[in-house]
């Protein structure tokens, strides 16, 4: 697998916008002085008349997008996750969420894989923040294929959508020929009886790799990709929990309020099952190369294998 192609989902996002710009003439893109980094610059180059830089003013940008949506256009707004979900949280809640406007938020540079920029820019809280807003759809694509499909699905969905993209190039494991994306539908990637690994975003690939290693060690793992944290696919989670009676969640986000808690919510109410969470614990990130940080914070196939083994042993 050494030669697997790697693409950052922010790149997929920018490419998808540029590719879909022809098909969807009502699509407009806004950025807050980060077009080169969020990759909306790819769209800007192709459609300069449909791209608007808002300058370093994210709060206003969210409101402008709300106004565009209120007049029937489909605005995509982009900045880093820290500023989209963090700084502009209240604008997203009150100007986009409450009136349920058709704004698509493309947040990039999420999680600790931002790397060297360090804690101020490593947003590990955005999923938690966004999923508390009533009516907000929250999507975290795992790779290039899924990210592109998610962008088009968001265009065709009426209502606010928060999409989380990463800075780090990650393996492209989905097959573009057969892959199908449906908002709110999880994807079972492997079937096993001993443990269910539920992952999202760039941790999905790590979960698949971990499951392969576990298999060699005699542990059969089910792997589920939850690309839509909200609305979450309850059925696929409950069914997998019934089949394995043990769940391990893996996310590049705080263990507070993210995928892990969303899965716990589903299972506590429907089929109480032991859930072990891998994510960023209650701490800030710090500077370093993204790959090293992911390893250090336990966001790796190795740590999934180790944690899964311990959990299965304790079953």
């Amino acid at each position: 697998m050494a030669d697997i192609k790697k693409v950052a989902t922010r790149e997929s996002y920018g490419n998808a916008l540029a590719e879909l710009g022809d098909k969807y003439e009502n699509l407009y893109v806004f950025d807050a002085d980060l077009a080169a980094a969020t990759k909306t610059g790819i769209f800007k180059k192709k459609f300069p008349d449909r791209f608007f830089d808002c300058g370093i003013a994210e709060s206003n940008m969210m409101g402008v997008a709300a106004g565009m949506a209120a007049t029937g256009k489909i605005p995509f707004v982009s900045t880093f996750a820290m500023f989209a979900a963090g700084r502009a949280f209240e604008q997203v809640r009150n100007s986009i969420g409450y009136p349920h406007l058709n704004v698509k938020i493309g947040a990039t540079h999420a999680g600790i894989s931002v790397g060297e920029d360090g804690a101020t820019h490593q947003c590990n809280e955005d999923i938690a923040l966004m999923r508390t807003i009533p009516g907000m759809t929250v999507i975290i694509p795992a790779d290039d294929v899924e990210a592109k499909a998610a962008v088009e699905a968001a265009i065709n969905y009426e209502g606010p959508v928060y999409m989380r993209f990463g800075r780090l190039a990650v393996p492209v494991f989905n097959d573009p020929e057969t892959y199908k994306f449906e908002i709110g539908k999880g994807i079972k990637l492997r079937d096993g009886k001993d443990i269910t690994i539920v992952a999202t975003g760039l941790m999905v690939y790590e979960a698949i790799e971990a499951a392969k290693t576990l298999e060699q060690d005699g542990i059969q793992a089910t792997v589920i990709n939850i690309h839509t944290i909200k609305p979450i696919d309850k059925d696929i989670i409950i069914q997998a929990a019934k089949n394995t009676d043990l769940v391990l969640t893996v996310e590049e986000h705080s263990v507070i309020g993210g995928l892990g808690e969303a899965v716990c919510d589903v299972l506590c109410e429907n089929y109480p099952t032991k859930v072990v969470k891998i994510g960023v614990n209650d701490e800030f990130g710090h500077s370093g190369p993204a790959v090293d940080l992911l390893k250090q914070f336990g966001l790796s196939a190795e740590n999934i294998v180790k944690t899964a083994k311990e959990a299965v042993k304790a079953k």
């Binding site: 409101g63 565009m68 949506a69």
Partner: peptide, 15 residues
Amino acid sequence: SLGQGISVACGMALS
């Protein structure tokens, strides 16, 4: 929520 309406008005005007 004060301060937000003018931004929305800007978006409508731009549109």
